[in-house]
Nucleic acid binder design. Sequence first.
DNA 1: TCTTGACTTAGAGTTAACTCTAAGGGGTAT
DNA 2: ATACCCCTTAGAGTTAACTCTAAGTCAAGA
Lengths: 132, 132
Amino acid sequence: MGDELSFTIKDVSDKLNLSTHTIRYYEKEGVIPKVKRNDNGVREYTTTDIQWLELVCCLKETGMPLKNIKQIVRLSLVTNTEDTLEERLEILTNHKNKVLEHMKSTEKNLMKINKKIDYYKGNVNCKEGKIQ
Amino acid sequence: MGDELSFTIKDVSDKLNLSTHTIRYYEKEGVIPKVKRNDNGVREYTTTDIQWLELVCCLKETGMPLKNIKQIVRLSLVTNTEDTLEERLEILTNHKNKVLEHMKSTEKNLMKINKKIDYYKGNVNCKEGKIQ
DNA sequence: TCTTGACTTAGAGTTAACTCTAAGGGGTAT
DNA sequence: ATACCCCTTAGAGTTAACTCTAAGTCAAGA
């Protein structure tokens, strides 16, 4: 009890493949909660801090703007967290639906790209016909 | 012969859901080939022009930077188009592979998001336990 | 004829998300 | 003790992809 594991910003940077600049930027902007400092003012990341960052990466990689991620963080830090559960759930569910839609349209676009590739391949073999 | 269908920039804007600004910007930047003008200097889009724009949208929506799209256009406009087929094929195939990878990672991220949603839903029902 | 509205241009402004710089402090290896 | 590297901050700069503005031309409708 009390002696939790802690990590430097460099550790976290290496682990999550984010620059130290970006990690500090996220904290300054409220994309993740404030991180505890030691007596020298140096940030000491807990596993919870790292979990937050992992969530941020997951949402960011699926296209959620930082603005919305901030909103989730803000809602998670109120005194009575359960008051904001519904709202956070709505943000996440909306996002999930957007991701699903995006996957569908990506599949369609992929088919178009494949057609284009096949068209080019046809030209490579035949060396004739109209090319766009 | 000679009397091809042609469309105004407004027509194209409505059809493809791109602003007229954006369409002109694409032309200026070389993202699409130059469009023919009438005697008053007004752009008249052919179906081929529209097909180009549709390809651009497809590539853009799947995350290809305009820089690479320009490259494809440039390679399509050389005198001996078949000389550049292999290179265009490579750009498209690389892109296709990136899209496939991205889809895979999106699926993983979606699973994480679903877990988070389930976790929140559990909290909504139980109103107890640690919340992050 | 006058107005309206679409078109033209060059170029400035915006936004998100970093990315970097300058100026300085602290702890550790040689 | 000196060099080195990581840490800190505020704030400036960058990039991609638009997005808009100003100033002007042109043609069709009232």
